[in-house]
Design a binder for these strands. Structure first.
Length: 878
RNA sequence: GCGAGGGUGGCUGAGCUAGGCCAAAGGCGGCGGGCUUAAGACCCGCUCCCGUAGGGGUUCCUGGGUUCGAAUCCCAGCCCUCGCACCA
């Protein structure tokens, strides 16, 4: 690359502009701003340094935020730190420091990296979740949720490492052996009392409201729908011998007459009870049951249950495919109409009886394979002949004890974590009073100093644990669990709105004005957890009258993965591109430009060396173009070419606006490049008009400013402005995108035609190209044909005085008749001639020939005979 | 298995939600030319087949269909990616 006279030196200008923006508070959003555009990237976990995924994420939001700012909107574009979590504890141990210091140093580093990338954030609104001033509001919300009945304490199974004496997250349990990730000790299950947020109270709204989230990708909505997993069905009691009524849940009540056995979960109370008496059942439960296996296994209990629809006694099994936390933990099995039941029945030799047949078909052979579709009932007594849906509702009414029921896959949100580096749960356990909430005036409950220990560090700190019951004053023990870090991130977007607010997590009035987030951008990996929790908290907070909005994020973009030369980047493979290196080598602008132009945000993005270089070259090129213009401006007027260039600049602005607006970006950047090369040709062809070149350059600079902010700032100054381009107005343009596109198409097609003719006719050296626009009457006939909806178009045209005088009229009418269905709107003849006149130079330049554009009435009959609207006649003289 | 999204010219990748401006953008690669002592960089053009005046033929996974007309809509199938998964 070398530091030739070409191009610019990013390291010399980038930090300078970063400082200038900061000095002028360019990105500050005043608290009294109204109706802000809220643009947000998912805040990063404080892992130590930014990776390319972050850089891509924040380049997208930064570009969009800067674009909105140029559109004259007040923009809120904040940043913060998801800074609680287990990795900090591990890092602290490895480095012999403590999580707080480690985390704060990570923040330092990452903030510097963000600054180096030129991201424009309102740092006055920075939010740090591990700061007591932040997490006190987690505690406050916990209490409010408690008051609203959204908090429960219940026993729950957790992964426990007996050696580390700690609870493990699912992802810390490794392999089929289920070993602790740190010490390889087999993990056991432990039943602990845990705190839950009852997100299931909002299950219906969370799933129903997805339909209206039109600014979200379908994939994310589908994932949330699946995750919530709402199922409508019925609960029906079955009489089980010796145990009374046992309820089952089914979505296929219409098949109940075909229920030929009954099955219980191995860990259900009844199964355990039966196991006390029955050796075989006990053996199955303890040794054989394998809920994760592919095969359905089970054991007969010897008991029977009564099918309430038929009165028949059916065998009761304990089976491992029955899960105690799904439905009621017991089910009626209909092997004829359920694949899993079918497999089990075949294995255990239980009868398979069809009770549903296709609406217009034979009774299916269910011995071989289950028929799982809805249909019409058979073998179902008085319900025969009903369709499945009808049968379900009738049976629901008729069967004793049956009732409609809705089941969800969504579970309540367990927020207890037996770890140090999180928000202390604001509870004190009193022997007399039970768990008591810490009074507001004692918030925040702050984390004590970190101590190295195998178990939960909080339990080791006497001063922390020892407390006084807020209710009765007796000695009590403080809760040592901390909150899931997803709690922190489920409302941080609200804290940005009023980061220093003292009375509540956020200022309701301002939040009502500023929320929801207009554009949220982040990784697909948060499709369910983070985005679902945030929606839940928003709704809960709305129901507490703290907010008028029920959805946090209006539009969501999930960005695609970053690849390196086609491969997933990973530290273990060693194929990682580090943001620092890129900034050092090419500058932030180049990296940003490359990221934005190489792929649309939601697609995978492939980092290639060639791509970066080509982006870098382009910026150099632009820099040189501006330098040259300023140092030695042209003095001509450029004639018709100037009008052509002007029009292309209009097109650039129009297309860029659309491209930014729909967040694709690529079209904007491509057009900017094309204008630049157009300017080169303009200069080579003629002595350009300085005003036109200036406008073109300024438009390119503005269009690129959101993506490559530093160099455009530099060039803006170079072009004689003393304000910031970041605060400049989006370029104005004349006309509308559709017309501009039509004009370009006309030019492009005409040029293409000339090329073809030259080639096909083997014209070595064209001397003159004559282009003749179709005469007025053809345009009129064309327009008439487009609007005419009768049968006889030819008759219609020839019947009119205005056309009859022209010799070519009958033929042209026939042509129109032939293609009347595909006739498109055309530019009026005058405009067509103007457009082509402006483009004359392109052809002249390309073929080194004289080019004439004739209006219809100027051309002779021979030539105009061939011309059509949108398709001028062309004659080439050698 | 279920759900979502895809399969486009040598590669990559737009367009396909509003069917005709689509033989199908851009980039890369390749070819030819310009510039240059030369190379690189840069610039111009070409890059499915045929054609001595803008034409014709065959293409957008495969096979059907709707339509005057389909890469674009519908149906079936094959393949790929990603989620969920013995969920009653």
């Amino acid at each position: 690359m070398a530091d030739s006279e070409r191009g610019y030196d990013p390291s010399a200008i980038e930090t300078r502009w970063q400082r200038a923006w900061e000095d002028e508070d360019v990105f500050r959003t005043p608290d009294d701003a109204e109706d802000v555009s809220y643009v947000l990237g998912m805040f990063p976990y404080t892992s130590g340094s930014l990776h390319m995924g972050h850089v891509r994420n924040y380049t997208i939001t930064d570009a969009f935020a800067r674009y909105k700012r140029m559109q004259g909107e007040d923009v809120l574009h904040p940043m913060g730190w998801d800074s609680f979590g287990l990795p900090a504890e591990n890092a602290a141990e490895e480095r012999d420091t403590n999580p707080r210091e480690w985390t704060l140093s990570c923040i330092e580093t990452m903030r510097e990296q963000m600054d180096a990338m030129g991201f424009g954030y309102d740092w006055d609104r920075e939010v740090v979740t591990c700061d007591p001033e932040y997490y006190r509001w987690n505690q406050w919300l916990f209490k409010q949720f408690h008051e609203e009945g959204l908090v429960e304490r219940k026993a729950s199974e957790v992964n426990w490492c007996p050696s580390c004496e700690t609870v493990l997250a699912d992802e810390q349990v490794e392999g089929d052996e289920e070993l602790c990730w740190r010490c390889d000790t087999p993990v056991t299950q432990r039943n602990l009392d845990q705190w839950f947020f009852t997100i299931t109270d909002y299950a219906d709204e969370l799933v129903d409201a997805l339909d209206d989230l039109e600014g979200w990708p379908d994939s994310v909505r589908a994932m949330q729908r699946d995750w919530i997993g709402r199922q409508h069905g019925a609960v029906v009691p079955f009489e089980v011998e010796g145990y009374g009524e046992v309820e089952i849940f089914t979505t296929r009540l219409d098949t109940i007459h075909g229920a030929t056995f009954f099955a219980l979960a191995p860990d259900s109370d009844i199964a355990r009870d039966i196991a006390e008496e029955d050796e075989a059942v006990a053996h199955f439960i303890d040794e054989e049951a394998d809920p994760d296996g592919d095969e359905p296994n089970g054991v007969a209990t010897g008991l029977t249950a009564t099918n309430p629809a038929t009165g028949e006694e059916i065998p009761v099994f304990v089976a491992d495919f029955v899960l105690s936390d799904v439905g009621t933990g017991a089910l009626m099995a209909v092997p004829a109409h359920d694949e899993r039941d079918h497999a089990f029945a075949t294995k255990k030799d239980v009868p398979i009886e069809p009770v549903v047949k296709p609406e217009d078909g034979e009774v299916p052979d269910v011995q071989e394979e289950a028929y799982t579709e809805d249909g019409v009932l058979i073998n179902s007594g008085e319900y025969d002949g009903l369709d499945s849906a009808e049968a379900r509702s009738r049976l629901e009414e008729d069967l004793p004890g049956a009732r409609h029921d809705t089941q969800y896959q969504l579970r309540d949100w367990g927020v207890s974590r037996q770890r140090y580096w999180g928000t202390p749960i604001p509870v004190i356990h009193c022997e007399e009073c039970g768990p008591v909430l810490v009074p507001d005036e004692d918030l925040p409950v702050e984390l004590p100093e970190f101590v190295q220990t195998t178990g939960n560090p909080l339990e080791e700190v006497e001063e922390f644990v020892e407390a006084e019951c807020p209710d009765c004053g007796r000695p009590a023990r403080r809760e040592t669990d901390t909150m899931d870090t997803f709690v922190d991130s489920s409302w941080y977007f609200l804290r940005y709105i009023s980061p220093d607010f003292e009375d509540a997590p956020f200022d309701t009035e301002r939040a009502n004005d500023w929320m929801p987030v207009d554009q949220y951008v982040g990784g697909i990996e948060h499709a369910v957890m983070h985005l679902l929790y945030s929606r839940f908290v928003t709704k809960a907070v709305a129901d507490m009258d703290l907010l008028d909005h029920r959805e946090p994020f209006e539009r969501l973009v999930t960005q695609g993965m970053v690849l390196l030369e086609g491969e997933k980047m990973s530290k273990s493979k060693g194929n990682v591109v580090s943001p620092q290196n890129i900034v050092e080598e090419y500058g932030a602008d180049t990296a940003r430009l490359f990221i934005m132009q190489a792929a649309r945000p939601e697609r995978e993005f492939n980092w290639t060396d060639e791509g970066v270089k080509s982006s870098h070259q382009f910026l150099d090129h632009l820099y040189d173009a501006v330098e040259t213009f300023v140092a030695d401006p042209p003095t001509g007027d450029g004639g018709a070419v100037t009008e052509y260039v002007d029009r292309e600049v209009d097109y650039l602005a129009a297309v860029a606006e659309q491209s930014y607006e729909e967040m694709t970006f690529t079209a904007a950047l491509r057009e900017a490049q094309e204008i630049l090369s157009l300017l080169d040709r303009y200069g080579r062809y003629t002595d350009p008009d300085p005003g036109t070149v200036r406008r073109a350059l300024e438009t390119v600079v503005k269009v690129l400013a959101p993506v490559a902010p530093h160099v455009t700032e530099e060039l803006w100054r170079e072009l004689g402005h003393d304000d910031f381009v970041v605060e400049a107005e989006w370029p104005a343009f004349e006309g509308d995108l559709e017309t501009l596109e039509r004009e370009r198409t006309l030019i492009e097609e005409t040029r293409e035609d000339v090329r073809q003719i030259v080639e096909v006719a083997d014209i070595g050296d064209p001397a003159e190209v004559v282009i003749a626009v179709a005469p007025e009457w053809k345009h009129e006939a064309h327009e008439l044909a487009r609007e005419f909806d009768g049968d006889n178009l030819v008759g219609e045209i020839m019947g009119r005085e205005q056309f009859r005088e022209y010799d070519g009229a009958p033929d042209y009418a026939k042509d129109l008749q032939a293609e009347r269905q595909s006739l498109k709107e055309q530019l009026p003849p005058e405009q067509e001639a103007d457009v082509l006149s402006r483009a004359r130079w392109l052809i002249a330049e390309e073929f080194d020939a004289d080019v004439t554009v004739l209006r219809g009435e100027e051309a002779n009959g021979e030539l105009t005979g061939k011309a059509e609207p949108g398709r001028p006649a062309i004659r080439i003289e050698e």
